[in-house]
Computed example of a mutant assay.
Amino acid sequence: MHHHTGSSPIIYTMEELRIQGEQLPIIKGFEKTYVRAGDEDTTKKYNDMVDEVNKRKDAFKEQHPDATEEQIMESVQSQQIEVLGTVLKTHKGKEIKGMGRGGERDLSHSSIGSTSNSRPPRVDEQQLQEVQQRYEQRLKESKDRAQEQLIEV
């Protein structure tokens, strides 16, 4: 699959979406990075991911009929990498095909491959600092809003 967001790694796209409040930043990051009009293969894969997320939501609702929408989304959010792995398949080792280091599986309990010989991720320090600054600003704003609400109460 061809990457459609220039030189920006998909992991940065996912982080930006998470900071913006996207409920499924990993799945949406895939869509933003790879899906383009006329590209049936990636569109199908994205649609398969959405279908898998909906199946997991339904299964959670069946198991927990009194769960709130927030609890359902928390459950699905924690399974996004599994959804990617299910739809995109995986390379031998820990990387999910097409996701580079942005979609790594945890192999700490697996005998397939070792992380000791894997390459470290390339990090653009400036972009990382910008993402961190945006995150800290949003955190400060959230704390300020919470303090204002507490004062009102």
Results as ranks from 00 to 15, higher is better:
1 M>E: 10
3 H>W: 11
3 H>N: 12
5 T>C: 09
8 S>G: 00
9 P>L: 05
10 I>A: 11
10 I>Y: 00
10 I>K: 05
12 Y>D: 15
12 Y>G: 06
12 Y>N: 15
13 T>F: 07
15 E>P: 05
16 E>V: 01
18 R>W: 00
18 R>P: 02
19 I>Q: 13
21 G>H: 03
21 G>Y: 03
21 G>V: 01
22 E>H: 08
24 L>M: 14
28 K>Y: 08
29 G>M: 00
29 G>E: 10
32 K>I: 09
33 T>A: 15
34 Y>R: 08
37 A>V: 04
38 G>M: 08
38 G>A: 11
39 D>P: 08
39 D>V: 01
40 E>N: 14
42 T>M: 14
42 T>W: 09
43 T>P: 05
44 K>C: 07
47 N>R: 14
47 N>E: 15
51 D>V: 10
56 R>Q: 14
57 K>H: 07
57 K>C: 06
58 D>W: 02
59 A>T: 08
62 E>A: 11
66 D>A: 13
66 D>V: 03
66 D>M: 10
69 E>N: 15
69 E>S: 12
72 I>N: 07
72 I>Q: 10
73 M>T: 12
74 E>P: 01
75 S>C: 10
76 V>Y: 04
76 V>F: 05
76 V>L: 13
79 Q>D: 12
79 Q>E: 12
82 E>M: 10
84 L>R: 01
85 G>F: 01
90 T>C: 09
91 H>R: 10
91 H>M: 06
93 G>A: 07
96 I>H: 01
98 G>F: 01
98 G>E: 03
101 R>W: 05
102 G>M: 04
105 R>K: 12
108 S>G: 06
109 H>G: 05
110 S>F: 01
112 I>R: 10
113 G>P: 04
113 G>Y: 02
118 S>T: 11
120 P>L: 01
120 P>A: 09
122 R>M: 05
123 V>T: 09
125 E>R: 11
126 Q>K: 14
126 Q>R: 10
129 Q>C: 04
132 Q>T: 10
134 R>E: 09
143 K>H: 11
144 D>N: 11
145 R>M: 11
146 A>P: 04
146 A>C: 03
146 A>S: 09
147 Q>P: 00
149 Q>S: 08
150 L>A: 15
151 I>S: 08
